[in-house]
Design a protein around this nucleic acid. Structure first.
Lengths: 342, 342
DNA sequence: CTGTTAGCGCGTTCAA
DNA sequence: TTGAACGCGCTAACAG
């Protein structure tokens, strides 16, 4: 009870004492900052090892005015693409030696509160995969010199960088594929409250189609995700005025729902229509769907996002970046490969 | 340039100055700790508001030896159940005023490194949804007085609490449903490298079946998830010695894969066999699967996990808890409702 | 109820 | 290369 009751946590001071050096020496060996003699370094390392010393990130962050934390804003993780994206981000963040603080956000107020909390933890960067970062809050980050990057969205907020899948090429690939397959009555399916990414894909798709002198029917789902796509299919079949033979969807969930909705009415792809979705998730490859999709390169997106954070972390006044990540067409059953000799 | 260049971050000191009170008063109003006169409180709040003051969580945590962070260990977010669970945890953590630090872990070494980092951030608690927490590390947490709770796993590690879906009842419900439907040749499908949860469900299922004097065939998938289930179905059909008419799966992904694998061979549920999966994910409800499942109550699990953290947070020596969360049977097409008058 | 004081554990000058 | 000393921003114990 007198001296055996060790402090719960061992500090740099303890290590210094045991190694017979000063606290500063300990700090230096662990931050690789100042110069330290090889011999002392080893003494410190050994003492630290024996005591099981680990730096206190709270104290470190307080001092450096910056923690090894990256804030990540997510939403609707039930969408496989979004959870896949989060997984990719986590991996990349950890690879770079950071720790992810993640917040699920449901509305604008939530985003505001979240970003505020991020700054209170002095995060080294913020990644927004959902919602529009309110410009005032972003300014707050900028004041604190915290870099912010948005994924699959793009706005004109000063000092915020963006990395985004190549929607234009993706839409063009889809258009090409549908048209080359002989589709004439094309449709674009999106959720009516779609994110920037969805809207952008739609515009690009229509542009691409119009270049071929064809028209596009707008299918607007009242709900997002699988159920929205399914309901849209039902409505299409029930009103059934238009003959549609090629559909491009803003995301994979909508596409799967649409496909199932059509099946419920006795139609299926590719016999009765062709179907292409955005996002290549595990689900889209499954036997019951076999969806032809535009595949986003999650690893590349995550990598680029972190790169941007570091660039702006070093130079807060760096030029705003809008990075585009290549996409590719994954051909499956719902819009099969073209006959090589037409 | 002389006095206009404000400090990047405004501190409690600044607020105190402007409000004409002491730093301590500021601290008190923000932590609701000591008592503070209503008048001063208002002055402080106003000054803080004008200056845009926010407490520095790093400093706060350093002082209290505990941050408002909860560490969450996850793995394979591509599984919809796991991402759903994470979403539930995030919501609950945020509701309680904490922030989630989440780490994706791929192997035992990763878990070790992760938990170590959690302690370095002085998290208020650790939630493990994947992997077996190595007992030495847990001890490290205990030393730091950090509560640890495991979800859907259960081991005999001192001072660690567990919350787990009621596998026994779930397995019994599944057994009941299959038997009452007239199934005679039952099988249990699991991944060969399954987690504790999967193994436990299997044992419970076999117990339940044996009580009815029936046997269970073991189907072992060499891979986890959808592809594992699909391959298992292929193997079953190709070797095809055994006639199987009722299958229970360790999780939903296996079940969906199994169903698709059977379909590829021309068999389908419920005509040719009955099928029940564990985990009720968005996927299982979709038209193309309509899987009968045992549903886990994610909200309840998350709530219980946080409750346990707080209990042990207040009393480190609290008795170890093994909480069980009720499950329910969601009846869909692959094992349909029974005829009311048999 | 309030202000003063003493750390929390670490990074970083500045001399030596 | 090293150590002494200061401060990061905040909380908590103590006096008034």
């Amino acid at each position: 009870m007198t001296k055996t009751s060790k402090k719960a946590s061992v500090t740099a001071q303890d290590v210094a004492l045991r190694a017979g050096v000063s606290r500063a020496a300990v700090s230096r060996t662990f931050t690789n900052n100042g110069s330290v003699a090889k011999h002392t370094r080893e003494k410190v390392l050994q003492a630290a090892n024996e005591l099981g010393y680990q730096v206190n990130f709270l104290a470190q962050g307080l001092n450096r005015k910056r923690s090894q934390l990256i804030g990540v804003v997510v939403a609707r993780l039930s969408d496989p693409f979004r959870s896949g994206l989060l997984e990719g981000l986590l991996l990349e963040i950890q690879n770079q030696g950071y720790q992810a603080m993640v917040t699920e956000v449901r509305n604008a107020d939530g985003l505001e509160e979240t970003i505020r909390r991020f700054t209170q933890f002095r995060v080294s960067g913020v990644i927004v995969t959902s919602g529009q970062p309110p410009s005032e809050l972003v300014n707050e980050c900028v004041q604190h010199n915290i870099p912010v990057v948005g994924i699959n969205r793009q706005m004109d907020i000063k000092d915020v960088d963006f990395v985004c899948s190549d929607n234009k090429t993706g839409a063009a690939l889809a258009a090409q594929q549908l048209i080359n397959s002989g589709c004439q009555q094309l449709a674009w399916l999106n959720y009516q409250g779609s994110t920037w990414g969805g809207l952008n894909r739609g515009e690009c798709f229509k542009d691409a189609i119009h270049q071929h002198q064809l028209q596009v029917t707008d299918l607007l789902a009242e709900q997002d995700g699988y159920q929205g796509g399914r309901a849209a299919a039902h409505r299409l079949c029930e009103t059934g005025e238009r003959q549609i033979d090629g559909v491009f969807c803003a995301n994979a969930q909508l596409a799967c729902g649409f496909l199932d909705g059509m099946r419920e009415h006795g139609f299926d792809a590719p016999q009765d229509f062709h179907l292409i979705g955005f996002d290549d998730t595990e689900l889209t490859g499954q036997y019951s769907y076999q969806l032809t999709t535009i595949k986003q390169d999650i690893r590349a997106i995550a990598k680029q996002a972190m790169t941007n954070l570091q660039i702006r972390g070093q130079d807060a006044a760096a030029q705003q970046r809008f990075d585009t990540v290549p996409v590719s067409l994954t051909v499956r059953a719902t819009s099969p490969a073209l006959n090589p000799n037409p």
